[in-house]
Simulated scan of single mutants.
Amino acid sequence: MNQIDAPSAAPSDLPPALERYFERSRIALALSEMNEDVPLCLVNHAFLDLTGYETQDVLGRNCRFLQGDDSDAADKAELSKFIHDDLRDSGRFHILNYRKDGSRFHNLVFMSRLRDEEGVTRYILASQFDMSPVLDRARLDANDATLARNISDIDKIAKEYGLAMISSAQLIADSITLIARLSVPRT
């Protein structure tokens, strides 16, 4: 669907093997130059598919354009701290990001420095993973536990007042849980 720009869009000193790796990888990858505002200089198909942007929308921009109002300030600060701390070679970060269409996704970002022969950071390589389905399942499990506690409380109250509707409540709760589980996409 989306195309990586011609090699002229990437820095001319990038090893051809790295560019080929970007083209083949099914993992969302982005490469940023370590200058000024750490702009993106190379992205792959998986990155474009994950974010919904086109190549021309992202090259030359810092990845923070993916952040939004609900992106956590502490998460943003951790990313920035890594970028500006040349002693750290790699890091893993969670950040709430937004696609071009405005939909949110929980991004697990792995960042690594690519250094030249003198040890100077030239690029930062980032791989992104959409963790939304996993987090949605975790929320479902937490909701199930809360629902079970509530059902137990209702059961106690119902028994205290001689009510016999708890099996109906359990059936409704089980149905809601089943519908919720079926609606969460499997990875």
Rank of each mutant, 00 (worst) to 15 (best):
A77L: 14
D69G: 11
R99E: 05
I124S: 03
S80W: 15
D136E: 15
F82D: 09
Q67V: 10
R64G: 03
R92H: 10
Y98V: 03
A126N: 05
F93C: 10
R113Y: 00
A74M: 11
L135I: 13
D136H: 06
R113A: 09
N97H: 07
I124T: 09
S127F: 02
E117L: 06
V109L: 14
S103F: 04
K76H: 12
L140K: 00
A138I: 12
D85I: 07
D69W: 08
S90E: 15
I124R: 09
D136V: 03
L79R: 04
L96Q: 07
F129S: 06
D116V: 04
S103M: 02
Y98D: 08
Q67F: 06
P133N: 05
K81F: 03
S132Y: 10
M131Y: 04
L79W: 08
F129R: 12
L108Q: 14
S103G: 02
R61I: 07
F65D: 01
R115T: 12
Y123V: 05
S90C: 12
G60D: 07
V120G: 02
N62H: 00
R137S: 11
I83K: 00
D136M: 14
R137A: 10
G119E: 07
D85Y: 02
F105Y: 15
S127E: 11
G91L: 06
Q128F: 13
L96E: 04
K81V: 01
E118W: 14
L96M: 07
E117K: 06
F93H: 13
E118K: 14
F82I: 04
C63F: 04
D69N: 14
Q67P: 06
S90K: 13
G119C: 01
D136N: 14
M111D: 07
D116A: 08
H94D: 13
F129L: 13
L135P: 01
D75C: 12
G119A: 03
D136K: 15
D101N: 15
R92Y: 04
L59D: 12
D70F: 13
R92N: 08
N107P: 08
S127G: 10
D130P: 03
V109Q: 09
A126P: 09
L79Q: 12
G60P: 04
G102W: 01
Q128I: 12
A126I: 01
Y98S: 06
D75E: 15
M111W: 07
R92K: 13
C63R: 05
F110T: 15
D85W: 01
M111H: 08
V109N: 11
K100S: 01
